[in-house]
Amino acid sequence: MNGLNLTGNIALVTGSNAGIGRAIAQALAANGAKVGVNCLSNIAQGEETVAAIRAAGGEAILVQADVTDPNQIDRLVNEVEQAFGGSIDILVNNAGHLVQRVPNAEMTEDMYERIMNVNLKSTVFMCKRVLPGMKAKGAGRIINMSSVAAYNGGGPGSSIYAASKAAVMAYSKGLAKEVAVSGITVNNVSPGFIGNTMFHATFTSDAARQATIGGIPLGREGTPEDVAGAVLYLASELASYLTGETIEVNGGMMMR
């Protein structure tokens, strides 16, 4: 029996139009899951993700929605569940963003809320929305996305981002204890320096990139597929006795 076989499962991956989210959606679909792909604004990229999944023989739909808005979260989940004829089995809260590097002396209330909303609020209310369906089945997999920044405070101007990712980790532990009785597992994946993403293309200089890679024991930056492998494991039956935990995907740059 293939412990990674997800046939019959309905998955929803937020922020999955490109980068890490796209790799996760493709990995889940390649192993049999029907996948809801979500994007905020770049619909063309989302369509590319869905097309790639379908070309490989998988099933996927695209739903544009802002996952910081509970009303849009409700619509997102409804559309995915209606398209695939059942409730969500696997939720991957991948949507998140540094938003902007801002020193604390210059932090505004608006920027604070934007950062916390996209990273923490989206995770909390996505989980809330899918839990009734999972509880009714007596099973479910929730995988949340933290960051190595949750441990080291992040780079310059990213302390609120780091705090939001630490909050996601703590929230996931509390939720894991709350829903374990219903057969639902809740775990985190914590990426380190992952290349081929808009995050580092936007916020990291080439000099900083090279310096960071120089400090990684495995000698390279990670790939979106490296992160997707950890998510696939947590979504599968192979991880049925694992909950409230965090898998570090960072090439050894931060070991717990």
Rank of each mutant, 00 (worst) to 15 (best):
T7N: 15
V102T: 15
N196L: 13
A176F: 06
V124E: 01
I88W: 05
V80W: 13
A27W: 03
M134A: 04
S159R: 08
V186I: 07
N78C: 12
E109W: 14
A163F: 01
Y161V: 00
V179G: 04
S122H: 08
P217E: 10
M145L: 15
N119D: 12
S240D: 10
M255P: 00
A55M: 08
E221K: 03
S172Q: 02
A180R: 09
A162R: 00
N93W: 05
A228Q: 01
K128R: 14
V50P: 07
S87R: 15
L242M: 15
G222K: 09
N42R: 15
T223R: 15
R54T: 10
A207W: 11
S190E: 06
T14Q: 11
E59K: 11
I213Y: 13
A163M: 14
L28N: 07
I73N: 09
A170Q: 13
I160Y: 03
T185P: 10
A149N: 08
C127Y: 00
V92R: 08
V231P: 05
Q82D: 12
S16C: 06
I43A: 13
N104F: 07
A23Y: 06
G8W: 15
A27D: 03
F84E: 03
M198H: 11
V13Y: 02
G85W: 10
N17S: 15
L12M: 12
F125H: 10
V186F: 05
K173R: 10
I73G: 02
G174H: 03
M145K: 08
A166E: 03
I184Q: 01
A230P: 05
L131G: 04
E81T: 06
S182H: 13
K177V: 06
N78R: 11
G219T: 11
D66I: 02
M134R: 11
S240C: 09
M255N: 14
S147C: 06
A201W: 06
A207G: 05
A18E: 13
N188I: 02
P103W: 12
G15Q: 08
N94P: 12
A60C: 08
F125Y: 11
F193L: 06
G153M: 10
D74R: 12
G46N: 04
K128E: 09
D69R: 15
D110L: 15
P70A: 04
E106S: 11
S172F: 04
L98E: 10
D89G: 07
A150F: 00
E221M: 13
N5H: 14
N117I: 08
G215A: 04
A180H: 03
V181T: 13
T202P: 00
A150C: 00
N9T: 04
R75Y: 13
S41P: 00
I160V: 14
N42D: 15
G19R: 02
M255F: 01
A136M: 08
L6M: 08
